[in-house]
Design a protein around this nucleic acid. Structure first.
Lengths: 197, 197, 197, 197
DNA sequence: CTGTAACCGAGACGGTACGTCCGGTCTTCGG
DNA sequence: CCGAAGACCGGACGTACCGTCTCGGTTACAG
């Protein structure tokens, strides 16, 4: 999300980059994404507006990078493989549920999920960096379960993964009910019945 | 979404109301929700801005009413009960998939689905008028299948419904893959395995 | 300078117009023309920037109207005709000298006199409303002196007028020496020698 | 105008100096003084901005030096002394008129005349280097005419000089009429009548 | 012949102001 | 009193430049 053709990245001020990202997260958390202006981010970060426009094409891109910074730990994301598929899935779904309810992430994350509707470039970054890792790791775990015979070898894994994550995001985005670890467990219990045999 | 305390609704101009709603849908479809301004809606509708502000609290509310007008036909929404649960579910999920891919609805509907993040009042109207009918009807159909023994009587129907709709909305909102009737069928096939017995 | 095609002048806020003009004069006097920004004028006047841009095309046009307002008294400008040409000319040249040294006018007036270099439209207004009246009145007085035989009938009055005002403006604009009533008198005394007989 | 305390003038790049001055004149002539930015001058000259700021305190100072370079020929300025005062004066006033109408000089020269309002330091350089030589030389010529009895010995020469140059600059700066050699002649003819006897 | 200290091109930086767009309020006039 | 029209105050947009600072690189003199 950060690279542009014009400016020279080697001369970029790390100080400013960090200040901007922190200010962005803070303001979005305090006042909401819509009410956060680039002007305010610049002011809070003690930075000229041009320094933001030089490195990011939009407010969404800034917030995206800010969220990415927050979640940097999950880089080498993978699902446990304890031999007990159901438990492994519960573990990862619970982690997702917790992330979705973490107030630090919630507002920004949700705003980005919205913003990708308007920005195809952002959307692909989002799928690749934010959504993809968890989805892919889960798919890998299911594939391994197919090899071990725990679940049906004919299963369409894309749909299977959606059966697991779909209910969580449904609640989260459409606000039909609160997301929780209990709900995550219930989803895994039910989805396992579809996948087994 | 329409009523406010001040003005007298009996003296309201139906002509203006219709023009505003049409203009809103047109502009959102043409240019996207974010780029549609109230000012532009008023201009397109040949209406003063105050006439919009008098009757709706926000752009979201206008678009909400506009979309509601479009979908007025589906008022008495219910799921067929042919005796074949799987076919009945496929029928309703396919209908949902088609609605989500209908270009007339897509942009506005998606924008609203996400705008509710910022407006609690709108959110409840949305759940009640747009999402609720289909979800409730589906739940009713499942309850009837429980009575007839087609599916497990212990099933948590809320989660079951999410298992059906979650994957569709997951694709649609997070843009992980295209929504289609084939996908809807695949979801039903898989979810049925979780619900049966 | 004030009229534009778009907006409706009958609905214009007199309150805002006055506040803008006052703020403009104040700021130019305090900080100089170049350091006065439209943004600052709007802020001082308690007015949106758009309200300035709606009615004036440039900072120069605002200041022009502001100065015009200040000098509105001189509307029906004319030169005394006491019968003593030299005294009449001294009277008007002294008045000009005083105006050029009046600190209230000096900064704004000087800035405008020079800003017309960049704005042909402003330049013609300037000549017509600010410079013209005094120059024309002086020319009229000289013409009457020609009829009475006080001065040479063959005299080119345009050059004669320049002989009177040129030295004053030369000092004032090029800052070669201070403008004063004594200087004005000296100029008249000398110029009279060129015009007589 | 050029020297500053910090940098070492002996190591200055003549190449850069020349490129900057040329670029400045070009840009001012093409687009006008106000629309010419230091950034643009640096870019056109193929020079870093700092190289300009190192050697000149302001855009005005750059343009001043650029104009000075153009007029370097007139260094040892003096007025002919043919014995015929009127002709000598016509010769020098015509030269001034031609300079003021030379399109190469006009824009930059006029801009400087404006800029001295805001920069006292520039103003004194301007008077000394640009205006002074012609004015002083003219005054010298008049003084010699006083000695030879051609003109009144009591004449205030400062005012006399203003009587000659004032009308030209009046036309040029206030744009009341075009400057021309004919006009210069007419001014001399008239002013001579004031000075003689 | 080699530091090392300056100027140099380049351009990122914190800022200010630009001129525009739009939000939401207020005012005027006609029906 | 509703509705159209649109002026108003205000806030943010994205851009252009300001004047300062920092980065290699390239002379040019001192050791």
């Amino acid at each position: 999300m950060s690279e542009a053709r014009g400016p020279d990245p080697t001369r970029r001020s790390e100080r400013s980059r960090t200040a901007i990202l922190s200010a962005a997260i803070e303001l979005v958390t305090e006042s909401g994404y819509a009410k956060t202006s680039i002007e305010a981010i610049a002011a809070r970060a003690g930075v000229g507006k041009q320094t933001i426009y030089r490195w990011w094409p939009s407010k969404a891109a800034v917030v995206f990078d800010a969220v990415l910074d927050l979640t940097k730990g999950q880089q080498g994301f993978s699902v446990l493989e304890t031999g007990d598929l159901k438990e492994d899935l519960k573990q990862v779904l619970r982690a997702t549920a917790e992330e979705l309810t973490n107030p630090r992430m919630d507002v920004s994350f949700r705003a980005l999920a919205l913003e990708i509707q308007y920005d195809a470039n952002l959307a692909s970054h989002w799928r690749e960096k934010m959504l993809g890792p968890a989805l892919d790791a889960t798919k890998d775990r299911l594939r391994s379960a197919q090899h071990s015979g725990e679940i049906d070898a004919d299963l369409d894994l894309d749909v299977a993964v959606e059966l697991l994550y779909g209910p969580l995001y449904h609640r989260w985005l459409l606000q039909t009910a609160p997301v929780s670890v209990e709900h995550a467990d219930a989803v895994v219990d039910l989805a396992m019945r579809a996948m087994s045999r």
